[in-house]
């Protein structure tokens, strides 16, 4: 029975691909499965998972958030700057970081919900505002004075090779899964994504859902930004610049429907893992790192093609006789 259930899951194919890739790469390059390498891989997956979740929620309501990276970057430099310049204790700095992310997400959500202007344009504009504030504060110089315990959090591992960074990622993963599958708010998110009109007619406040989802997205972007600070050991102003493609690639590979209403947390995790494995493999096989960019783009196209085929099959089967 569990096996059948597993095969039925839409991410089963992806799981097979990931497993085969791990076995194949591990066979060809034994260094792939050394504890050190696994730790690097898991740290990358942890950070990217939170970034992908921040975008996945917005894809769930049928919108997009181009400013995920800009929010992450702004929080990252604020977090590092508060510790460096103002010597703020870590919990307080984390709290302020989370609040900035939440506020940035609320800003997006409120404008989109109240004006009805496309999320694309609003988040493109807010991307520039957040990034501009980031550069205005830092003048493109990193903050180096990150607290020692934050640095060690980004570097240490527990139970053998598990990086500590996996803890916030797991928390986010379980939280979002629980939200979307077990909580009223999450079900409403998907309902709004599937059809805002229908959701509105059954009494869901579309406006509140849009605002709440964007606020959550900002919060997750903030968590990701602070995780990157812990991993890089400095507050780089460029943090978040390269999140855009990744944040869309992982949910789409994981089976998210861009029109909204359908996202998959486990699929997104496998999408993030696929990307991390490919990136690692290119490094291990000493293939030009520039190729990563090509692979990411092709992965999106491939995933879109697969999703398209699945949709076609579904519509064929669901046609009334």
């Amino acid at each position: 029975m569990p096996l059948q259930k597993l095969l039925k899951a839409e991410w089963s194919g992806l799981l097979l691909v990931v497993t085969l890739a791990i076995i194949l790469i591990g066979y060809l390059k034994p260094s792939f499965l050394t504890p050190f390498n696994i730790q690097i891989l898991l740290a990358a997956i942890s950070v990217n998972m939170v970034i992908a979740l921040a975008q996945m929620l917005i894809v769930g309501i049928g919108q997009m958030n181009l400013s995920v990276g800009a929010i992450g970057g702004l929080v990252a430099i604020s977090f590092a700057g508060l510790m460096d310049v103002f010597q703020l204790p870590i919990p307080l700095a984390v709290l302020v970081g989370l609040l900035i992310g939440l506020a940035a997400g609320l800003f997006n959500g409120v404008i989109i919900a109240f004006t009805g202007i496309s999320a694309f344009i609003i988040t493109l504009a807010s991307l520039s505002v957040f990034k501009g504030i980031n550069l205005g504060i830092t003048e493109a110089q990193p903050f180096y004075g990150v607290a020692e315990s934050v640095k060690s959090f980004g570097n240490s591992s527990f139970i053998g090779t598990l990086p500590l960074l996996i803890l916030p990622a797991l928390l986010a993963l379980i939280g979002v899964w629980f939200l979307l599958n077990r909580m009223r708010f999450g079900r409403h998110v998907l309902a709004v994504g599937a059809s805002p009109t229908a959701a509105g007619l059954v009494g869901i406040s579309v406006r509140n859902i849009v605002i709440g989802t964007h606020a959550l997205s900002g919060l997750l972007a903030a968590v990701a930004g602070m995780m990157v600070v812990a991993r890089l050991q400095i507050g780089q102003p460029t943090i978040g610049d390269d999140w855009l493609i990744l944040s869309f690639a992982a949910p789409v590979i994981g089976g998210a429907v861009l029109a909204g209403g359908h996202v998959n947390v486990i699929g997104t995790l496998l999408g993030v893992t696929t990307i991390a494995i490919i990136t690692q493999a290119l490094v291990l096989f000493e293939i030009d790192p520039f190729i990563v960019q090509i692979f990411l783009g092709l992965l999106i196209l491939w995933a879109v093609g697969i999703n398209r085929l699945r949709d076609l099959r579904l519509t064929l089967f669901s046609k009334p006789a």
Binding site: I291, Q293, G297, L298, L301
Partner: peptide, 12 residues
């Protein structure tokens, strides 16, 4: 989504 993918592919 198509041009998001190709912006990465072309640049890469």
């Amino acid at each position: 989504i198509i041009t998001l993918a190709t912006m990465s592919v072309y640049f890469g």
